[in-house]
Design a binder for these strands. Structure first.
Length: 632
RNA sequence: GCCUUCGUAGCCUAGUCCGGUGGGGCGUUACCUUGGUAAGGUAAUGGUCGCGGGUCCAAAUCCCGCCGAAGGCUCCA
């Protein structure tokens, strides 16, 4: 679409004769419009109504600057050598006109398909003359294949449009599996579910505070924004990298134990690959796009692509199923709109464990779904997020519920708390059933962590088949599961949870296995440093992270700083301890209460609490005096 | 992306409305202090006032554009 925009004192035009047979009806008389922004407009191959709206929105922004509110849409074919079919062009022109009127712009239009004579007087100011052109999005132009040309809107936005039109009905699933309309549900005792419901349905919030986890992630030197990158691409300091890495290792180990086969797939894919193209069309255009020579690539926004392409080429039969492929994507990329990117909660580059299970039929899928439901809840609780911290939403169609009520009942019984249900009349997405588990933060906002879904479309789209008992090819059902959700988001949830506990009067902390320093040794004086080092070696040999504060500050200040770093065990060591062998341990989870114990008792206590979790050594130098400060 | 608010040293912040030599705290460094469970003392160091343009004799301050953040809208596959 090309538009020549002229801020005019006036324009006079007169239709002379029809140029094409589908020209609109018009009278051959002069029209004069004063003080108007004239839009000479050419509609090109591949243009669509979304683009028409975009163009009008741009014009609107412009009108604001010019303090004008009158436009004339003037069809003007001469701006382009790549015109669309006249019928299509007329439709889009009309869309522009309708949309502009809807937006309250005083809109005039010159007739389409006529040879017209005109006189125009253009204002002299710098903004008076503007030319703009709108090219279709790459996927959209591809999809404008002849057979699809009659489609009303660009395929890329099909999913979005569907969402606009889609009606959902909100219910609560009680533990007996019955559905109660949300208006009738008594939320007493379920305040988080109520907050979550309101977040999902009304989207009603009013907060002016900075998200607590953003301040914490900086202050604790976990992560920070990186101004040198795109928003939502995060910088991880040593402590943060360690935390993130431990979570990655933990989730990966759990999925491996469940039977997921870890694979690795490319970060970028060809826009024009046939399977990918139609999958992309199911989603809003939110990709990072990059050009490499004459190829157009996009960065993956999930692990689906690589795993599906792999499954497409794999040979398997019902005997091997369910087959589970797993990848921890570092990273998945989604170009979320700038206003949506927040701290560690919503990123443009994030780390997502993604496990797909290929199942023979719905029975097998349901069975697998149940196993993974348990897995997800257990993984989260080991990460440090328990059932009180989140709520579940389940989404399905009316028909699915009717047919599989027992199954849904079983899931809700397992969860043991009421579940928010979104019920659709028809299926809009590629899944038949989906649940997501949502953390509710200090601003009463929800963020999805774990999720699983039964995908009934993509096997066909990617031509993924298995051989059944009769030797015939069949399409499997595909389950998509992220047992923990994005790793960054887990950290967000842990920080928000810690903040909440602080507000409730507790000492905020991370789970022990994720604490960068688990034990801090504070010598009373430099002369004990040698002893400290011995002690630290003894503790470290049990895979416990210990460090030594050898800085020049006072004892009290060192304790204060250790507390501010959320160190779980702080040990002051002087003459007394070295002589008696009894350590005086300040225990954070007991609000700083001091306990006397031997080194062995301390080691046993810590080891017990971190049993079964992955270990990484201290991410920073042993001595605090050797550490740089990453954040003021 | 849109609307609103904000951006002052590594960090927190005063000053901006009403233009006229940018002030404090934390940190860092040095010296003193060698301390028994949440901030010891003194001094030094540190600023293209987010970036670019404009108005003005003069801009952190007023105007325009851009970048970044927060909140709201929208969105979250």
């Amino acid at each position: 679409m090309r538009i020549l925009q002229l801020h005019s004192n006036f324009i006079v035009f007169k239709p002379v004769e029809k140029e094409i047979n589908i020209a609109e009806e018009a009278e051959k008389q002069e029209t004069r419009v004063e003080e108007v922004v004239v839009l000479f407009t050419a509609i090109e191959e591949g243009d669509n109504s979304a683009m028409a709206q975009k163009a009008i929105n741009d014009v609107r922004a412009f009108l604001g600057k010019l303090k004008a509110n009158r436009i004339l849409i003037y069809p003007f074919a001469h701006l382009s050598s790549n015109l669309s079919q006249p019928s299509e062009a007329l439709k889009i022109i009309k869309d522009m006109e309708a949309y502009a009127k809807e937006k309250g712009i005083e809109t005039y239009r010159a007739p389409f398909g006529w040879n017209k004579q005109f006189t125009i007087s253009i204002k002299g100011h710098p903004l008076a003359e503007q030319a703009r052109s709108y090219a279709p999005a790459p996927a959209a132009s591809e999809a404008q294949a002849p057979c699809e040309a009659k489609k009303e809107e660009e395929p890329v936005s099909a999913a979005l449009k569907a969402e606009d039109k889609m009606q959902s009905f909100w219910h609560v699933i009680q533990s007996d599996g019955s559905l109660v309309p949300i208006e009738e549900f008594k939320f007493k005792g379920h305040t988080n579910l109520q907050k979550f419901s309101q977040y999902e349905i009304k989207k009603a919030r009013a907060v002016t505070q900075m998200p607590p986890h953003v301040l914490l992630m900086k202050r604790l030197e976990i992560a920070d924004y990186e101004p040198g990158s795109d928003p939502g691409n995060i910088r991880w300091y040593p402590k943060g990298r360690m935390i993130k890495s431990l979570l990655e290792q933990y989730v990966t180990a759990r999925v491996a134990a469940y039977g997921g086969m870890e694979v690795e797939t490319p970060l970028m894919y060809d826009f024009n690959h046939p399977s990918l193209k139609s999958y992309l069309n199911r989603f809003p255009a939110r990709q990072y796009v990059l050009k490499s020579e004459d190829k157009e690539l996009f960065l993956r926004f999930a692990a689906c692509f690589g795993q599906f392409l792999m499954a497409h080429d794999a040979q398997f039969s019902y005997k091997q199923m369910p087959i589970k492929l797993y990848e921890l994507t570092r990273y998945s990329f989604r170009r979320e709109k700038s206003g949506e990117v927040v701290g560690l909660k919503r990123l443009r580059a994030f780390t997502m464990p993604d496990c797909h299970a290929f199942c023979t039929d719905l029975e097998q899928a349901k069975k697998e779904f149940m196993i993974r439901f348990d897995l997800c809840i257990d993984v989260l609780s080991n990460i440090g997020l328990v059932k009180d911290d989140y709520e579940i939403a389940m989404r399905f169609t009316k028909d699915f519920y009717a047919e599989h009520k027992e199954f849904i009942t079983e899931l809700s019984k397992k969860f043991g708390k009421p579940i928010l249900a979104e019920v659709w009349n028809e299926r809009f997405f590629y899944f038949a059933l989906k649940w997501d588990l949502n953390f509710i933060d200090n601003q009463d906002k929800a963020a999805a962590l774990s999720t699983d879904q039964i995908d009934v479309e993509n096997a066909k789209r990617y031509e993924i088949t298995f051989v059944d008992e009769k030797g015939e090819k069949q399409y499997p059902l595909i389950l998509h599961c992220s047992p923990s959700g994005a790793i960054e988001r887990d950290i967000y949830a842990l920080l928000e949870k810690a903040y909440r506990e602080q507000m409730a009067g507790k000492a905020p902390m991370l789970p022990l296995w994720l604490s960068p320093t688990q034990v801090r040794l504070i010598p009373i004086s430099d002369k004990f440093l040698d002893k400290m080092e011995e002690l630290s070696k003894q503790i470290t040999s049990h895979c416990i992270r210990v460090d030594i504060d050898d800085s020049a500050s006072t004892l009290q200040k060192k304790i204060r700083e250790a507390e501010q770093e959320w160190v779980p065990y702080i040990i002051v060591v002087g003459e007394k301890e070295i002589e008696s062998g009894m350590l005086s341990v300040r225990v954070r989870e007991l609000k700083g209460q001091q306990q006397n114990m031997t080194t062995e008792q301390l080691i046993a206590k810590v080891a017990e609490k971190i049993a079964g979790k992955p270990y990484k050594p201290l991410p920073l130098p042993l001595y605090l005096s050797k550490r740089p400060q990453f954040h003021g």
